[in-house]
Nucleic acid binder design. Structure first.
Lengths: 194, 194
DNA sequence: ACCTGAACACCGTTCAAGT
DNA sequence: ACCTGAACACCGTTCAAGT
């Protein structure tokens, strides 16, 4: 919108950083299916092939996009005075970060980089479980379990949201947030007493 | 392969049932990306457009495929003498059913029909938690929590498997089955004591 | 009733060619 | 160094036309 109120923001140095930025805008507005090389090029005011020069093919594009986001998501500050509460708060803010970016989970998942992106959170969780008196290996397993709970919850919640037209009235419909808390609590209690 | 050793099995009544059957073969051999209207038609020995006459567009095709599978997956027989063990065995066989069909979770997930397909299992789990002394609502929540654990685990496990070339050596790599059992146990213990 | 062929509007990607 | 245009091999889908 830097030029003539149109979709295209023309020339003026189409850098790699700018491409990634516009790709994120496209993901935000049109979702995962809306991010095509052609649509991206159009929004940049450039021929589709120009993107190939700057970032490479679509796999490389998605890689760059995921790289760009990784920092924001990994950034979790645990709060609370005892370990269980710090674990729960970490899980909550992680969930929050993920739900804030509906496309993130899908893209990262498709890219097969889920494990990698949660490394900082994994370290935090493992440390807290160690503080509960678990051995190194048990603490690592417990941390992974909580992480999986977060990721699984978000994957399922977003999938339910995306359902085009739920064919079945879908039961009394359990509240996602409530279920998340309940499971988280049961999990932390069950894992720390070991 | 009913004719001339080729890919195409020609004519002889291309029925709706046959189309779904071949679609499943295609999913098994080539995965989700391999199931295209054109590839399916080729394997049936027919023009792509013929499929539209029998089952409609691709969304309808996927719907038919999911319908066809639903029964097999929902079919879980809980075993064990106490409720916690029956819950765990249900979760295990569900996980087993899902891992057996790598494409299933992805397709069902894309279709937004995860909740629907697990209805029978949900009923079983809720009943068992009721047997543990939980009230109706708590039992339903607990059942859903276990279900989510199963689905989330499989989603993550398959995603890890699909990773094209893990960019990071990926930690000591926790064993998926072990993590599944550990979490399941902690979850059931945490949920039934409530 | 059942199927084909041609056509349309999309994809991602390569590569020679321009400046 | 940076970008375009034309081209290729794919998609899903529609629709008139054939038998």
């Amino acid at each position: 919108m830097s030029v003539a109120g149109g979709q295209a923001s023309r020339g003026e140095g189409v850098t790699r950083a700018r491409i990634v930025e516009v790709a994120l805008e496209l993901l935000d507005s049109d979702g995962t299916a809306g991010l095509t090389m052609r649509a991206l090029a159009a929004k940049l005011g450039v021929a589709p092939t120009a993107i190939y020069w700057h970032v490479g093919d679509k796999a490389a594009l998605l890689e760059a996009v995921v790289d760009h986001i990784t920092a924001d998501v990994g950034d979790v500050q645990p709060s609370g005075r005892d370990a269980p509460e710090r674990i729960r708060s970490t899980a909550r803010s992680l969930r929050h970060n993920l739900l804030e970016r509906p496309y993130l989970v899908a893209v990262v998942h498709e890219q097969g980089r889920t494990a990698e992106i949660f490394r900082p959170a994994r370290v935090v969780l493992t440390r807290e479980f160690s503080g509960c008196g678990l051995g190194d290996r048990d603490a690592a397993l417990a941390g992974e379990a909580v992480l999986h709970h977060v990721i699984g919850s978000v994957l399922i919640e977003q999938q339910v949201a995306r359902a085009p037209a739920q064919r079945v009235p879908a039961e009394p419909a359990v509240d996602a947030a409530e279920l998340f808390e309940l499971t988280l609590d049961a999990l932390v209690r069950g894992l720390s007493r070991d």
